[in-house]
């Protein structure tokens, strides 16, 4: 098609390899090893709505199939959910009352309030198909107020942070991505450390003091020290302590949120800061 002689073939291969290495080395100094530039952002701004629409079509087909196959269960489930909504409404009212009490007491004690993070619900529409990195695409973007570095959580705990923002979608760097690092506190011992991703179901706790009394089962929460994640979000639990080597202790961590099965998340708008 393009080249026919062996020499031109070799030239084509060399040009492609050179282009790939040029692209890769151009991004090495960026914090997330990724810089797509305005051309890439423009292309993605065109492609992501198509991807969101594809997901919507698949979701509708799936919902139609589920509705068809489970119509018998839906009535009883509907009644159960109505009761649940009623119970949750009462609970929300109680919590709102408690929150206003906290505001009053905080004012009384002159404590500086935490930054106002606004949660925004989003749906996962696409996932990185490879197994070496871990990112997902959400159906909320700059038009919904999402910004780079905003924290992303589920009811179970921290999921990651926003890596790239497009007009109608945002890409999230999951905790399990090798580029991810989160400052944490061991809730029981108050030791500070860092949780890093390993592109698998288990995370790695690093830079933990050697004299830490950490145990399997200990809960890890965000320390809030890096300025990216708000303080006190559940990150995971210690699964196993690794044999001592070097200046610090290391441990394996099971993420609090099931990162392989996330479907809906909350983006904490305004939680991340650009450094």
């Amino acid at each position: 098609m393009i080249a026919t002689t062996p020499r031109r073939r070799a030239g084509l291969l060399a040009a492609l390899v050179f282009a790939a290495i040029l692209l890769l080395t151009g991004q090495l100094r960026t914090p997330d090893h990724r810089a797509i530039g305005w051309v890439g952002e423009g292309i993605l701004s065109l492609l992501t709505p198509a991807q969101v629409a594809l997901e919507g079509a698949l979701e509708a087909a799936e919902r139609w199939w589920v509705a068809l196959s489970e119509i018998g269960q839906l009535r009883s489930e509907n009644a159960r959910l109505r009761a649940e909504v009623e119970r949750l409404r009462r609970r929300v009212a109680r919590l709102e009352e408690a929150q206003s009490e906290v505001v009053r007491l905080r004012r009384l004690l002159q404590v500086r309030p935490l930054p106002p993070e606004v949660p925004r619900a989003a749906r996962v529409v696409a996932r990185d198909p490879g197994s070496w990195f871990a990112t997902v695409l959400l159906d909320r973007g700059a038009r919904d107020g999402v910004r780079r570095h905003d924290a992303v959580v589920t009811a179970d705990g921290l999921v990651g942070r926003v890596l790239e923002v497009y007009p109608t979608a945002a890409r999230v760097l999951l905790l399990s991505d090798p580029r991810s690092a989160v400052g944490v506190l061991v809730q029981r011992t108050r030791d500070a450390a860092v949780v890093e991703g390993r592109a698998g179901p288990v995370l790695r706790l690093r830079y933990l003091p050697r004299d830490s009394g950490i145990r399997p089962g200990d809960l890890l929460v965000t320390s809030g020290l890096g300025g990216v994640f708000p303080r006190g979000i559940r990150v995971g639990t210690v699964r196993a302590i690794l044999p001592k080597a070097g200046l610090f202790l290391e441990a394996e961590v099971t993420p609090a949120a099931d990162l392989d099965r996330i479907e809906e998340v909350l983006i904490l708008l305004g939680s991340g800061r650009e450094w």
Binding site: I2, L24, Q27, G40, G130, R171
Partner: peptide, 28 residues
């Protein structure tokens, strides 16, 4: 080989762009 290289690069580049990788990894 020519078609394989060109479409391989194009397909990999699209994957890089759509998946949050460093650009050029899958393309190369």
């Amino acid at each position: 080989p020519e078609a394989g290289a060109v479409w391989g690069f194009a397909g990999g580049f699209l994957q890089d762009l759509l998946s949050g990788h460093a650009l050029g990894l899958e393309a190369g």
